[in-house]
Design a protein around this nucleic acid. Structure first.
Lengths: 201, 201, 201, 201
DNA sequence: AATGAATGAGGTTTCATTCAT
DNA sequence: AATGAATGAAACCTCATTCAT
């Protein structure tokens, strides 16, 4: 039983890749820097991944896969829809804006044109999924008479948009001097606005 | 009287650069492709711009500069604040999501780490400016009793966030198969939600 | 009768070329800088000279041609050979080490490999000529019994070597901090040494 | 135990660089030609040296460093000063005029303006050092009554000048048809002249 | 499994030179 | 006669990737 399993090695490489790709983007990240960060040789990277692209894809996939379960509300029934929605917004915004996650939308946005299948994967796995969950949550509230009848899809866009906005703000603008936002408070305000919009007339 | 003035040439180069940088990002865009698109030699590019970076900066600056005046509401007094805000959201979202503009936030997000001064310029020139204008618009409405007293800054974040969201959706996800959004209708819904949130209790 | 004749123009270009080639050497001198120095366009240079090489050749030839008459002793008969030799050394060393001339051996030495015909021209026109003149002067002295019988050629090498040495010292080493030499005094000492060597046993 | 150690490789590159830089000077030498001469790829050069400049600097430094110990007289005491001086001139002139060394002053003179720190290094490490050694040797002879009291510094200039002269002659003018000089004989004659100059009157 | 060494492909940039005006 | 604008031909350098050991 080896001390360092191949899977461990893979994970350590991906961890290093996260830092490098997050900092420099795909094109400007250097395999050498990834290797240095792991403490192995450049050539050893190619024992675990076929190419720079493959590593990038693996990173993005893994991050998305790890992110999703922590994002979605686990249960739609036990709480009133407004409380559920508020909780989701607070949680998701906090998750997405966390330093180890905020780079993801930045990377997807930045490299989407060069890696369409990644953009697609992100879109299908993350965006669609969250969007759908929020939409269902809203429809669920509508059914139960807790929300007025509105275009649930568009309302969901509003929710996800504000979450991504928080992540991008953190990861793109705060490093260049933007006034930091209080994510909890922003979540609170967004939730208030959305809920007001969803409140029956 | 020359057929092609230097300024014309500069503009044509920037136009070509827009396509290339928008498609490939900074690092993967090739000066040769820009030149080909203009129909001139690579060396001729360097008559107008000192370097690839300089061209990129010029492009971004120019787009931001051209964008701003068309984004902001020109007059805060003649209409009721709710109508004004609704009009702003509709107009700005349409502008930002237009095919020739939606690439901008994508580029800023994607290259912000490598060109911090551009991210900063965008942030200070565009984001702050729009954010401030929306905030003032809301405060203006609050003063006139048309809006309830809320955290105007956070509300403004919600507005700008939804605008950027629309642009990114268009420019990042629709090309990889995302369900197209009806920007007008999204604007309508977002405006409804925001206005509901701002409506006095 | 034009204010600026073509010949004037040619001279002004050569003057500018002297500065640029002297400062940067052939390869690193830029035609644009020459043009700027003259106050004309790059293209105008090509009305006067076929190419950068042609300009360089013209410059070197002209400088050599201008230098020679001022270098050689004009008359071998009126003075005793030792006085003549001393006067030659003093004069020639001063001429060659002057700021507007010291660059010449530097250029010849530096570019000789890339411009063999210039090295050859310099060698035949300047070196051989001076060497021969000094040799004849010495032989003249030997004939008149003023000098001992030595290898006049080798003695002449010593004379010209010290002259070139002074020019290179000035132009290569003084700019990087070498202790400045007093050319007059160096000439005096060299002359003393040479004359001692030539003094009959 | 590798067949080719990194140090070997470095040396082979420097050897190749010597040929190319000696032939073409810094600016016109091509890295590709250096690589070809070594029999490796251009990129491999950059494993050993950071840049063309770095390679050039390394070459010059190395040659200077290798040259110096072989140039200076090792012992000032055992021989009469005149014999010592004569031996030094013969040895140094032969060393400097050797085909693998004569290019050095040529390179320093040619590139000194573009690489001032190399000119300075050469001046401080080689020129000053040799000049000083000769000066001390002369003063030593003066103390012992073997030389007349003259300006030892100027006399030393005469000695070093003639040595450089021989190297430049070999490396610049002989390739373009100059009459070859017999270095041994030239050394003999120069030594004779200098010693005559130094001889007490 | 791991790496030091090597490379090929490619990109930016510079500059002498030309040409239409 | 003069030039602004344009270009083609390099040259340096980088880096993902491979391979012998």
């Amino acid at each position: 039983m080896p001390r360092v399993t191949p899977a461990d090695r893979r994970d350590r490489i991906i961890e290093a890749a996260r830092e490098e790709f997050a900092t420099h983007g795909f094109a400007l990240a250097r395999m050498e820097d990834v290797a240095k960060r792991v403490g192995i040789s450049r050539a050893a990277l190619y024992l675990a991944f076929d190419s720079k692209e493959a590593l990038f894809r693996a990173l993005v996939s893994e991050v998305i896969t790890a992110l999703m379960p922590t994002l979605l509300p686990s249960d739609y029934g036990t709480l009133p829809a407004p409380a559920l929605l508020r909780a989701f917004i607070r949680n998701a915004m906090k998750r997405m804006a966390a330093p180890d996650m905020a780079f993801l939308p930045r990377l997807i946005v930045g490299e989407g044109r060069n890696f369409p299948e990644l953009a697609q994967f992100y879109h299908e796995t993350a965006t669609i999924c969250v969007l759908g969950a929020v939409e269902r949550l809203i429809l669920h509230g509508v059914e139960r008479g807790e929300f007025a009848c509105v275009d649930a899809r568009m309302a969901a866009h509003g929710v996800t948009g504000s979450i991504v906005h928080a992540a991008l703000w953190r990861s793109v603008f705060e490093p260049v001097g933007a006034e930091p936002i209080d994510v909890d408070w922003l979540a609170e305000c967004q939730a208030g606005m959305v809920l007001a919009g969803l409140a029956g007339g």
